[in-house]
Structure formats: C-alpha cells, structure tokens
Simulated assay, not measured.
Amino acid sequence: MSSFAWMAWTYQTAIFFAFIALSLVILTLLAIYRPEKPRKGILGFPTTRGDRFFVSLLGSAFIFILWMRLDGGELWYALAICIPFAVAMFRFA
C-alpha cells in the first residue's frame, strides 16, 4: 500500500473517483440498452453522450482551475458554475 502513499487519498478524492466510475458504468449501460445517433449541436460537430460527458468534465476542470487562480475562495461557487455548464453541454452540444 505504500506505493499509493504519494496520492494522498482522502474520502473526498475517493468520492470523486467513485462518481466518475459510476458515471462511466451508467454511460456504458445506456449505450448498450439505449443506443443513440450522434447529434450536431453548438459545438459544430456530431457528439454522443460520452463525448458530451468528456467535454463537461474537461470544461469543469478548467472552470475549477480558473476559479482557484483568479479567486482562490470556496470551491462551492465553482461547483455552482460547473453544474449549469454540464447541463448546457448535455442539452445543447
């Protein structure tokens, strides 16, 4: 277990990675049981659920990084920005 000591695991980190793993399982099951055709949205190229999920995660990471760089305050506010961003990506992208 000492090989993982550098990662500084906390329960918050474990919850985050569990959420990502659960999301990937749900997206996989949706792809199996309810396949979809790629659709073209505001991004200008066809995307699937998985693509929109990836863009949401990537955009949220940038929002958090910018929040920490510019403000450095409570991260709950950055989360409050990321949730509508992810909803918009799934709805319009």
Rank of each mutant, 00 (worst) to 15 (best):
M1R: 03
M1L: 07
S2Y: 10
S2A: 12
S3Q: 04
F4W: 11
W6Y: 06
M7E: 07
M7Q: 04
A8N: 10
W9V: 01
W9Q: 00
T10N: 01
T10M: 04
T10F: 10
Y11R: 00
Y11I: 02
Q12W: 12
Q12F: 12
Q12S: 03
T13Y: 04
A14C: 11
A14R: 01
I15L: 05
I15D: 10
F16L: 12
F16T: 00
F17V: 09
F17K: 00
F19N: 08
I20W: 12
I20C: 01
I20P: 06
A21D: 11
L22V: 07
L22H: 02
V25G: 09
V25N: 07
I26G: 06
I26W: 02
I26T: 03
T28F: 00
L29E: 01
L29W: 00
L29Q: 03
Y33E: 04
Y33M: 09
R34P: 04
P35W: 01
K37V: 07
P38Q: 07
P38C: 06
R39Q: 09
R39C: 06
R39L: 08
K40H: 06
K40C: 01
I42T: 11
I42G: 05
I42F: 15
L43D: 06
G44I: 02
F45E: 05
P46Y: 05
P46K: 01
T47C: 05
T48N: 08
T48Y: 08
T48H: 08
R49W: 11
R49A: 07
G50N: 10
R52K: 11
F53V: 02
V55E: 08
S56M: 12
L58Y: 08
L58M: 10
L58G: 11
L58R: 10
G59Q: 15
G59Y: 14
S60V: 10
S60F: 11
A61H: 10
F62T: 13
F62W: 14
F62N: 07
I63T: 14
I63A: 03
I63E: 00
F64I: 14
I65K: 07
L66I: 13
W67S: 00
R69A: 05
L70V: 15
D71C: 02
G72L: 14
G73H: 08
E74Y: 08
E74R: 03
L75E: 13
W76D: 09
W76G: 01
W76I: 03
Y77H: 04
A78F: 11
A78Q: 07
A78L: 10
A78E: 07
A80H: 10
C82W: 08
I83Q: 07
I83N: 02
P84A: 12
P84E: 10
A86H: 14
A86G: 07
A86C: 15
A86E: 14
A86Q: 15
V87M: 15
A88K: 15
M89I: 15
F90Y: 13
F90S: 03
F90P: 02
R91I: 14
R91S: 14
R91M: 15
A93F: 14
A93P: 05
A93M: 11
